[in-house]
Nucleic acid binder design. Structure first.
Length: 213
DNA sequence: ACAACGATACCCT
DNA sequence: GGGTATCGTTGTT
């Protein structure tokens, strides 16, 4: 395995836009109760802001549900939607209420285990190409809500020593019904595990431009 | 208890 | 690309 170094607190103590961008290419790792290690490379994220962001769960203030969003930066915030789960990391500082949603990873470790949990054959897009898919693949549920990514031995994020270069792409967020114009979605251009419209990738846009001629 | 919601995923065209 | 199944969670009686 590559040389990985777990992210420290100051990394998460930045504005969510910065954390969302810098998380791309980092390793998301999870060790379950059987000691089984799973994870992959983060390829798509979204920032949710503390102020002026009507799409953020923190928009109407703190509640028992979103408490982890207001916890120490680097705290895991897991919420449920459509009978599934999505995972975020709190950012900036405690009591602020900003976070980054991890929308997709490229599977790298424990692929057999993740495939089994997802009920898919192998390393295909449906394995971890969406926020609820990756949570199911990693067995991240409400049980992991509140975990501290700096100290937890069950879920954490790490930086690789020599990350490959990639092209960053930025678009509006997926699935939100308000604040739909802000470009707060970040992803690795061209990566097959990125969710949403394929046309958001510059290669596809380039190809389409030529087809239209 | 119960009803309504939803930062989804899947299946179908 | 669009319709909808699905159910954990939350807020309301």
């Amino acid at each position: 395995m590559q040389t990985l170094q777990r992210n420290d607190r100051p990394f998460y103590a930045q504005r969510p836009q910065t954390v969302a961008r810098q998380l791309l290419g980092m390793a998301l790792l999870r060790r379950d109760e059987h000691g089984q290690l799973c994870g992959g490379w983060i390829v798509e994220t979204e920032a949710y802001l503390a102020h002026g962001d009507s799409a953020s769960h923190s928009h109407r203030g703190q509640s028992p549900r979103n408490a982890s969003m207001f916890a120490t930066p680097g705290t895991l915030y897991v919420y449920s939607i459509h009978a599934k789960f999505c995972m975020n990391v709190s950012t900036e500082a405690a009591d602020i209420g900003s976070a980054v949603l991890i929308r997709a990873i490229e599977p790298a470790w424990g692929i057999e285990t993740m495939s089994h949990r997802r009920g898919v054959a192998g390393t295909e897009r449906r394995l971890t190409g969406g926020p609820a898919m990756l949570c199911q693949a990693l067995d991240v549920t409400k049980q992991q809500d509140g975990q501290d990514l700096i100290a937890s031995d069950t879920v954490w994020i790490a930086t690789v020593a020599n990350p490959p270069s990639f092209r960053l792409q930025r678009t509006p967020r997926i699935g939100v019904t308000s604040a739909t114009t802000a470009r707060l979605r970040y992803f690795i251009d061209g990566n097959p595990f990125v969710s949403g419209r394929r046309g958001d990738h510059s290669q596809t846009a380039f190809r389409r431009l030529h087809e239209d001629l």
